[in-house]
């Protein structure tokens, strides 16, 4: 504990700087959320509260495009996150439970490096890779790319959880006549479950929100929600974009919250 004298709250300018940071971070989101309720064709003139742009998202002229894009986003996010989580779980098992093997440090670096690489680099590299192997761009390329970049996101909460699990549990299970597989499924997996679910949700949200990589690797005619929104914005921002963005924001907040709560949850109490 910091003593009250050294408490960060007593630093000069602490309060104004905090407020400034919060405003910079959240003001744009707040503006979008508020103006999504604007009963006006203009995005800047306030004409009172209405849900007409939310209705427009589902019934308006662009609704078919958004529905298809949302469905693509959802199915890709679902499949990519499940595959990425499966791979990440196996990777975490090897890294945390595999003892020290040759190339362990290198593997650890390789798993988490994509988090540090600028996304545009990954996007370009992925695109070049697909072109080199003559892979026709479309739904499948998005799915493969998403699975790949979701792995480190799924890996982090899973390995964090796993590091907190005592080695002795598996030994105790095997001592009590469980085979290696039974020790994994009956003891290790349930103990890892909160980490796995948390990783899954994180991977899902990352896939759902991704724009840059998707934009590079998607084929003509295949859109996810972020690329569809971008496409609409290029023809001028209409208030329906604000409505759809607000919905996407709300959905993300819910998932991130669930992910956070699950990672904190404890099935041992």
């Amino acid at each position: 504990m910091a003593s009250s004298k050294n408490d960060v709250r007593h630093y000069t300018g602490f309060f104004p700087i905090t407020v400034l940071c919060l405003v910079i971070l959240y003001a744009p989101l707040l503006v979008v959320t508020i103006y999504s309720l604007n009963d006006s064709n203009s995005i800047t003139n306030w004409e009172g509260i209405s849900f007409r742009w939310y209705v427009d998202v589902f019934t308006g002229p662009e609704s078919d495009k958004f529905k298809t894009a949302a469905w693509n986003s959802f199915t890709i996010a679902l499949m990519a996150s499940v595959m990425a989580t499966t791979i990440a779980t196996l990777a975490a098992t090897a890294m945390v439970r595999g003892g020290s093997f040759r190339g362990r440090g290198l593997s650890l670096g390789l798993i988490s490096l994509p988090l540090m690489v600028p996304e545009i680099v990954t996007a370009v590299a992925t695109l070049i890779f697909f072109s080199m192997i003559d892979f026709t761009r479309g739904y499948l390329t998005i799915l493969v790319a998403h699975t790949a970049f979701c792995i480190p996101f799924a890996y982090l909460p899973i390995s964090a959880r796993m590091q907190g699990i005592d080695d002795n549990f598996e030994q105790a299970a095997m001592d009590l006549y469980a085979s290696k597989r039974q020790a994994f499924t009956k003891i290790l997996l349930p103990l890892m479950a909160p980490g796995i679910v948390s990783g899954l949700l994180l991977a899902f949200i990352v896939s759902l929100d991704d724009f840059i990589i998707t934009n590079f690797v998607k084929g003509a005619g295949v859109e996810t929600l972020p690329t569809a929104i971008f496409g609409s914005v290029k023809q001028g921002i209409k208030p329906n974009i604000m409505a759809i963005s607000t919905m996407l924001l709300g959905f993300s907040i819910v998932l991130v919250t669930i992910s956070f709560l699950i990672s904190k949850s404890d099935n041992t109490k």
């Binding site: 005592d166 002795n168 549990f169 030994q171 105790a172 299970a173 095997m174 001592d175 009590l176 006549y177 469980a178 085979s179 003891i187 349930p190 103990l191 099935n267 041992t268």
Partner: peptide
């Protein structure tokens, strides 16, 4: 024999009770 095929059981120092 692997541990799970030996008819011996262990009481571990830190008990290793399955927490879940």
């Amino acid at each position: 024999l692997p541990p799970h095929k030996r008819p011996v059981n262990t009481v571990f120092q830190n008990y290793a009770l399955f927490p879940h």
